[in-house]
């Protein structure tokens, strides 16, 4: 069976600088893979390439069977990306944001409400504008918007950042459930103890290339 993520000598440029400098990586369906590495190693770029947001300058790149070199926009609707940014409109309420983002991908607005409940976003927050939320609450709403899309591939950039202990446990639980349901998870984290406990496999990147791969705990 074809891997969900298949990269061979993949190069991606940021302002003409090779942020990914020949990455080889395969991720199978249902796998949870931790991408680790120092700041500037290329973790975020790797996730954005897999999401179809950044072009692949050279090499081979297929995600969910889509050739990213030629048709990267075709994969976008099938992946969920949690980035450093919240991906939310500050002046809209939590509920309005969820309604917009779920309807934009053709999902039900009920999926958005269910995701908010799953992320333990208190109902009293649903009608507040996003700008009134704390960083941790925004993170949960962001995650809810991503979960509501029901993506086949989860791409998570520092998913635990800014969350309290309860929030981190919720995220870990969601990652486990997603993998059990057949989704694939590729995530970057600096919180190695927690992340390695969730991941099936660890990939270490540095200088825009994969240095090592190994089984996780």
């Amino acid at each position: 069976m074809e891997p969900v993520v298949h990269l061979r000598a993949a190069v991606a440029l940021l302002d003409r600088f090779p942020a990914l400098a020949g990455v080889d990586l395969d991720v199978d369906a249902g796998e949870v893979v931790l991408v680790r590495g120092p700041n500037g190693a290329g973790k975020t770029t790797l996730l954005r390439v897999c999401a179809g947001l950044l072009p692949v300058a050279s090499g081979e790149a297929r995600v969910l069977g889509v050739d990213l070199v030629r048709h990267r926009s075709d994969v976008r609707r099938r992946v969920g990306l949690l980035g450093h940014a919240t991906f939310l409109y500050e002046d809209l309420s939590v509920a309005e944001n969820l309604d917009f983002w779920t309807r934009a991908v053709g999902a039900s607005t009920d999926d958005g409400r269910a995701a908010l409940d799953r992320l333990a976003v208190a109902p009293r927050l649903h009608d507040l504008p996003v700008r009134a939320l704390s960083a941790g609450q925004r993170r949960r709403v962001s995650f809810a918007a991503m979960v509501a899309r029901r993506p086949e591939l989860w791409l998570l950039d520092e998913p635990h950042a800014g969350l309290d202990a309860t929030g981190r446990d919720v995220i870990d639980g969601l990652i486990g459930e997603a993998a059990a349901a057949g989704a694939t998870v590729l995530f970057a984290s600096h919180e190695l103890d927690r992340a390695e406990a969730v991941a099936h496999r660890t990939v270490t990147v540095s200088g825009g290339a994969v240095l090592a791969e190994g089984a996780s705990r």
Binding site: R48, A51, G52, L53, S73, R76, R77, V79, G80, L81, G83, H84, A85, T86, F87, L88, Y89, E90, D91, W101, A104, V105, A145
Partner: peptide
């Protein structure tokens, strides 16, 4: 408003 907080990326990911 589309340039704030990564919203443009999120819009592209919707497939609209």
């Amino acid at each position: 408003v589309e340039a704030e907080d990564g919203v443009l990326d999120a819009l592209r990911l919707t497939g609209l």
